[in-house]
Simulated assay, not measured.
Amino acid sequence: MRFGDGAPVTAYAGDLVSQLGPTFTFQQRDTRHPGLDGARGLAVMAMVIGHTLDAVLSPTVREDIWVQHYWTCRGITAPLFLMVAGWAVVAALGSKPTAARDTYGKRVRRALLLIFLGYLVHWPGWSTVIHMGLTEKMLTKVFTFDALQCIGFALLAGATLLAVTPGRWGRTAMLAVMTVGLPLVSADVRAMSEGLPGPLTQLIGSDGFSRFAFFPWAAYFFAGALAANLLGALRPGVPQGLALLVLGGGLFWFMRGQPQDWGPASAWLVAYRIGQGMMVLGFINVLPRKVSGLLAPLGRLSLWVYVLHLPVVYGWSSYAGLSSRVGPTLSLPAGLGIGLALLLGCALVARLGTWLRDQARPWRTGSTTLEASVGSLGSRGS
């Protein structure tokens, strides 16, 4: 094929590339971090199977030593989701000084979507709302605060702070203060929330309310953002993975030597889980790309798998879920089978939904998705 003067198209393309410089490419760059989607995929797998087992395993099976070990390991799932979300937000900013301000509106919209979906999956139904009336008890039930809302509010706070904090070192200091400060003040802030309206108490945190309150759970988001900011100069993959393994292993080892406190507002527990989360991220990063890539497709669908599986397991509105229809009656193999089937089914539905969305909006195909820039999600298990 030639233009009117007879020069081939390839010659024009070559001239254009030479003028734009060696970094120019006609192909869209892959801006996704090679380890983040794999970490999300591992976390969402543990989340769905963990929720299913929690809903259907019989009390006798729960007492098994291996199941108890699994419950202990499962506690990293929600912190890992939050850390990946924070990492993804900072990694997406790149080196452009004004990136945080330029993308602020998009971040706010995504945060509001996460908060809306988080409250939606806990909707108790109109019959419950009408029966309870306009009371604080009803508002507390309608505005049940869970991990997805925590990610949304953390993203909202993080995007705002990143947009107003100048310079790389200023951003580093801000993220460090939030990572360390939130757990340290959580016990006092939660104590001061006593007597506030139920929805606000759940957000802030108080004994007997949300297990994923902003204080101290948002610290995991800022810890992931801080790690991304500090390690951004390293190449994704093995270099970043080794750094994460060293930092996470050192923090984990140090915290194991400190007095243990497994309370809901424990600063020790937050640091302990951050160390574990960094080691998991490091392990996924050092894996060969072909191995971590097996989990990546599931990681990219993690938000929608989260939204889809919760009503199936725990019910939604007036529809009963597995926890009510089956109850704690099954053996471990049966529970694992149901969990894997649910994971596969939700992933297929989510993939079909994203495909239909892409067909309806072809101009958006290939753009960064919600899961890529926000991270994903949380879990009921802790």
Rank of each mutant, 00 (worst) to 15 (best):
T25P: 04
G198K: 11
L340D: 11
F283W: 11
Y70L: 07
L156D: 11
L36S: 14
M255G: 02
L287I: 03
Q260G: 12
Q202H: 10
T354Q: 15
A78P: 03
S18N: 14
L175T: 06
E63K: 01
Q202W: 04
G170M: 09
P34M: 05
G35L: 14
H51N: 12
A320M: 12
D207N: 08
F222Q: 05
R2P: 07
F116M: 07
L269S: 12
L36R: 05
G275V: 08
T10N: 11
G181R: 01
L298Q: 01
A225D: 06
A173W: 14
T31Q: 14
K137I: 15
A350H: 01
H131Y: 13
F81D: 08
G86D: 10
L269D: 13
R273P: 07
T369M: 06
T60C: 00
A320D: 14
W363R: 15
Y12K: 14
S186G: 09
L16W: 02
V349G: 02
L155T: 11
W71E: 02
D54A: 13
T25Y: 00
G335P: 00
F3E: 02
L42A: 15
L343H: 05
V326C: 06
G232H: 02
T103P: 00
L332Y: 00
A78R: 09
L281P: 13
A11M: 10
H122C: 10
M47R: 05
Q68D: 01
R289N: 12
P97D: 06
G366A: 04
T201S: 13
R2A: 12
M83V: 06
A159E: 02
A78D: 00
G263I: 10
A360Y: 09
S193P: 01
T103A: 15
W169T: 09
R357P: 04
L342H: 04
G353H: 09
P124G: 11
A176G: 12
V238H: 02
P124K: 11
G248L: 14
L301R: 09
G381F: 11
S18V: 10
I65P: 07
L42N: 07
H309K: 02
V312Q: 03
A213F: 02
V291W: 07
W253P: 14
G345D: 10
A154G: 09
A85V: 04
L156K: 10
L148W: 02
A157C: 13
T160P: 09
T72S: 13
M178V: 11
S292T: 15
A233N: 14
G375R: 06
G224R: 08
Q202S: 15
L148D: 11
S302D: 01
G345S: 13
R235I: 03
V291G: 05
A147T: 06
A243R: 09
G118R: 09
A147V: 03
N285D: 14
S376C: 15
M278D: 01
A7R: 12
Q260T: 14
W363G: 15
F254A: 15
L242F: 10
C73K: 08
G41A: 13
G195V: 08
I284G: 07
P79H: 05
G21S: 05
G232A: 09
L175P: 01
F214E: 00
S373T: 15
G315K: 03
D261A: 08
T354D: 14
L287G: 03
